[in-house]
Every structure is written in structure tokens, then in C-alpha cells.
Amino acid sequence: MTISALGYDLASQRLSSPSGVDLQIGPFVFHLQLDCPDLALLVYELWRDYPLAEGAAVRDFHIQATNNSVPRRWFRPVVRIFVDGRTPFPPLPAHHHLPMLEWGLNWCIAQRSHHLLMLHAAVVERNGRAIILPAWPGHGKSTLCAALIHSDWRLLCDEFGLVRPEDGALLPLPRLIPLKNESIEVIRSFAPSAHIGPSFYGTRKGTIAHVRPPTESVERMHETARPGWFVFPRWVAGSPLRLEPMLKSEAFLMVATNAFNYEVLGQTSFELVGRMVDACDCYSLVYSDLDQAIRALDELTRTADD
């Protein structure tokens, strides 16, 4: 049963009740309790495909979001997030509730999932093989990822490339994709079918709007994928498309230094990344036009399938 199957009234009632709701998002179970009606509405709309984890006794993270602080109800209202009853961030203006919730989830995952290797990367899949797009701030990974998942690629994740140490499989974590500033309009015109939530103005990352993960990606979130390609994307205004092979040694360093917890896993991550880079073709991609970039990646991955 998904959130949307509850219907809005029941969903918002359960989200705001003291006992909250348990949701399965990728490999994790989140216990969520919202004292924030506007946020409950957005969660209903944008998280609608996540299944309720009924009967999950052990939850991974307990998150509460509230804009209910009495002294701040009328004067500059704020939204706060609590993880296990403690707040990891200072409060934000009340109307930034969804970015706050999403950052809260990121924080929980990044802090507490050291049983997995967490690459800082977007991951999309087709025919069981994944393109891993490592992230560098401002290089347009999220935009490219949003475009790919509206071009017949399945979303594994936009932020965390989760690698299971036991077998090197990539675990899906289909979450909202936060688009920043100009990217919002770019994706709106590239993929009119994309479901994009409201824009949040003036956050610390500028204007943010979230792309809802396609329903199919959420329904298939237990299907892992094997790494197929590393592609290091960079958006450069007006640049012609350049998709060039990269030295594996260079790719290794870039993946390792950019992971969330490469050091924490020590030798395990050294071996995991080494095996991944060995198994993958590694490319750098410079682009300005999304259509061209998607075509080039289609081409690249199709030749590999032959």
C-alpha cells in the first residue's frame, strides 16, 4: 500500500498523528511524523509512490518536522526537523519545509549508513547496467539525471550512489531530485511530463524545485543494478558536446575523493571502487545541450550492448 492509496485525508491524518507513518524508501525505512500541514500536502503529492512499511519493527531513521513552535507561530514562523528528538540543523523559514525535510533525510543517510559505500553520485539504469554520474557542485549532475530518467532510464538515485560491500551491487534510493535555479525551466521544457513540485525561493542554494521520481523507479526500488559506466558530466554554456574516454586511474581518484564515506570503509572501499572502475568504461562529458548529451549517452551504452 502506497501513500497515495490512503487518499489525502487519511494520509495527512496519519502523517500528523503522534504515531506517524513508516515509509520504505529504497533500502531504508523512515519513520515520519509531520506537525506541518503544508508539508503533509507536499509529501502526499511528491512522495506518493512510496510504500508504507507496515509491520517494520526496526526503523532506520525517526524524523519529525514541525512548524509548531509556540513563540514563533506568528513572528517569523520556522520549520524545524528532529532526528531522534534532536535537531541537526538550525530552523529554516516555515515555507522552506520540503527542502528542510529532504536535507534531513540526506543528513540521516550520510551520517548513519556506513555499512554501505556511499558515492556522491547520481545513478541511472537500463537493462540492469547503470551509468554512475559523480557529482561536482555546479556541474549539472541533477539536471542530467532528471533528463535521463525522462528518456527511458530508470532512476536509482540522484545523490547517493549506494554500493553494497558484499557484492558491489548498486542499491536504488529513488528520491526527489532537487533542481536549482535555471535548471528548473530547462527540465520543464525538456520533459513536459516531468512532475515538478513548487519552487522554493531564497534557500541557501537559491531557488529549488523537486522532480518527483517516476512511479516505475519507485516500484522497482528493490531491483539492484550492476555498474556499467562512469560518466563525469560538466555543463558548460555554449560548449560543443565532448564525450571522451578517461584514464581509469584518474576516474578512481575522482570517485574515491568525492565519496561520502570512502575513508570510513578503508580497505573495503578501496577494493570496491577499484573493482567498479575496472568493470566500467570511464568517460568525461562536457555538454551544453541536454538532447545531444542524452543521445550521446544512448549511443555509448547501445554500442556496449551489441
Binding site: V58, R59, R112, E263, V264, L265
Partner: peptide, 21 residues
Amino acid sequence: PERAANHLRSARNLVQHRHTL
């Protein structure tokens, strides 16, 4: 339980890392 074991493993990895550092 598996989900609990994940968190224990995560904590162990973090502790080992601090010890090494």
C-alpha cells in the same frame, strides 16, 4: 534483526575508522 545489524555494522566501521585515524 537485519536492519538493526546494519546500524551496528555502520557504527563499527565508524569506530574502526576513528581508531585508525
